[in-house]
Nucleic acid binder design. Structure first.
Lengths: 125, 125
DNA sequence: CTAAAAGCTGACGTTGACGTCAGGGGCAAA
DNA sequence: TTTGCCCCTGACGTCAACGTCAGCTTTTAG
């Protein structure tokens, strides 16, 4: 699989895939002309990388944690970092839930206000 | 309340408070010499701003949504944006939960592996 | 009164995950 | 063989939420 195909398969840009390689998140074997080739499993790896990025984990930590998550490679220190990251995400989940609830409250209040006869600011003239 | 006091009260930097004003998230009345003064309620507003930033909402949208959230000011269009933002956050919550679960699985697997006798990579020499 | 502490306005620096452009190969179809 | 698409490596651009520094005025503590 070449880089364009992997990009199409995962929905991430070619540039991003090269960036992942630069950050040691993804490896490729090169043909003699220098073109990157990937195994089919690369698509899952890329999706995992995206998931971790989306969780707010920076490249450096993803690089640390990836082998552990994918292949189960582990040391006590790594387990600590993995757990720390898990807890950080858990914290953010709770923050986001609090914020969502706050928005829900605002939405409810707004809906009530609109039912009570403040349907729309009066159009000018 | 002056800017330094508000910063101390909320834990955000003076620079950040000036930035919020620049982004129309926060207003202040100025003394004749130009110094900013805030009412006590500003602390809550700042904390709300931080909460929304933490939820990944950019300045522009915060500026749109803040009056609605704080004072209940509303229009149908605003209600739509508020709801859209709520749904976005809800989506991110579910993504994060999935990621957390994935890390939990990796942690469990790692813990099992370590119990099974791969406690630590052998120290060299 | 004086010196430190706090405020003010620019304005440039930072960080991360890419976007984008320049300039140059390589390879299958027609 | 040419055409056209895909690939390559730099290297600079971007965006957001501030950090930081310069240079100057204001307020406050002693």
């Amino acid at each position: 699989m070449r880089i364009g195909e992997l990009a199409a398969a995962t929905g991430v840009s070619v540039r991003a895939l090269r960036y992942y390689e630069e950050q040691n998140l993804l490896t490729s074997c090169r043909s003699r002309s220098g073109q990157r080739h990937y195994p089919d499993s690369a698509a899952d790896r890329v999706r995992l990388i995206q998931e971790l990025y989306a969780a707010g984990i920076p490249s450096r930590k993803i690089a640390e944690l990836l082998p552990c998550i994918e292949t189960g490679e582990i040391t006590p220190a790594l387990l600590d970092r993995l757990t720390a990251e898990r807890d950080r995400i858990d914290g953010r989940i709770h923050e986001l839930i609090a914020t969502r609830d706050r928005l829900d409250a605002a939405i409810d209040a707004a809906a009530n206000a609109m039912r009570q006869g403040v349907p729309c600011p009066r159009p000018k003239a």
